[in-house]
């Protein structure tokens, strides 16, 4: 059985994100398979949401494209079941808390597990509200990934101390989207997390170039990229697979160089 931790067993991890159903589920399936073939160590599959408050314009637009085709959770689960990976790589879902809550936390996590998902990332469920989904995740055998931000300060120990799978460290203030620079205290935040937990730390939000990925991989265990990939999907639609595949290859090479 694949586990979230497996992503970090082969050196520095590269973690790409795509939005399920953008532009359609068939393309999402091909993208996931191709990204793994290109060297991705963990796949973050975004559940489209009507009001994604942690996302910048690029992923917001992807959610709109997916939802304009009326993609449903059941259809996403069914698609995930059909994914054929060239090698075992953990899949996690990035979703806002409401789709899980309304679908039913137990039902959602059980179905997710059944179709091969091994963790959830829920940006609007902070430490204080973990009880909303954690019992269901535990029961189903899913890891609930904790997020830590540049503003977390004294909360880092508390959050990291209970974190499971890996810690998702947010690179900067603000929402997702390509950036040219990150929070000045990012290396310090990662160091503080590492002092509080033994589990790996991956950094996301705003990363797009191999140079940025390489710089982050010097002090973190993994690099997460969303908007840069979603931009390629936006530009090339159903024909985006080779573009995304080349991009993932280049990013994986960049983080690998820091092993």
């Amino acid at each position: 059985m694949t586990d979230v931790a497996d992503a970090f067993k082969h050196g520095k991890a590269f973690i790409p994100f795509v939005t399920a159903g953008d532009p359609d589920l068939e393309t999402t399936k091909k993208l996931v398979e191709a990204m793994v073939a290109a060297g991705a160590d963990l796949i973050e599959l975004g559940i489209p949401f009507s009001d994604p408050i942690a996302e910048g314009p690029v992923i917001q637009a992807a959610d709109v494209r997916a939802l304009s085709n009326h993609v449903t959770l059941d259809e996403i689960f069914a698609m995930v079941k059909t994914i054929e990976l060239p090698r075992p790589v953990p899949l996690v879902m990035m979703t806002y808390v409401n789709p899980v809550f309304v679908y039913g936390a137990e039902k959602f996590t059980k179905k997710a597990k059944e179709c091969g998902i091994c963790g959830l990332i829920v940006p609007d469920e902070p430490y204080e509200e973990k009880a909303e989904l954690q019992p269901a995740c535990r029961k189903a055998g899913l890891k609930l990934v904790s997020m830590i931000a540049p503003t977390s300060g004294g909360r880092i120990r508390m959050i990291a101390g209970e974190a499971e799978g890996f810690v998702y460290c947010v690179s900067s203030l603000g929402v997702t989207g390509v950036r040219t620079s990150f929070s000045n205290n990012l290396p310090d935040v990662v160091t503080a997390i590492k002092q509080a937990t033994k589990i790996p730390v991956a950094v996301g939000f705003g990363v797009s170039t191999p140079e940025q990925a390489r710089a982050i991989a010097k002090f973190a265990d993994g690099v997460i990229v969303g908007s840069a990939i979603v931009k390629l999907v936006a530009a090339h639609g159903r024909d985006s697979v080779p573009y995304v595949s080349d991009y993932v290859k280049s990013m994986k090479d960049a983080v690998r160089s820091e092993d």
Binding site: P123, P126, Y127, E128, E129, M147, A149, R155, V170
Partner: peptide
């Protein structure tokens, strides 16, 4: 765990991104 002062029965809470928690 959830801040009891922020609850009205089961309602309320603080379902925001970690970035905002210290501000709240």
């Amino acid at each position: 765990m959830t801040n009891p002062e922020g609850r009205f029965g089961i309602y309320g809470g603080q379902y925001v991104t970690e970035t905002l928690m210290n501000a709240l």
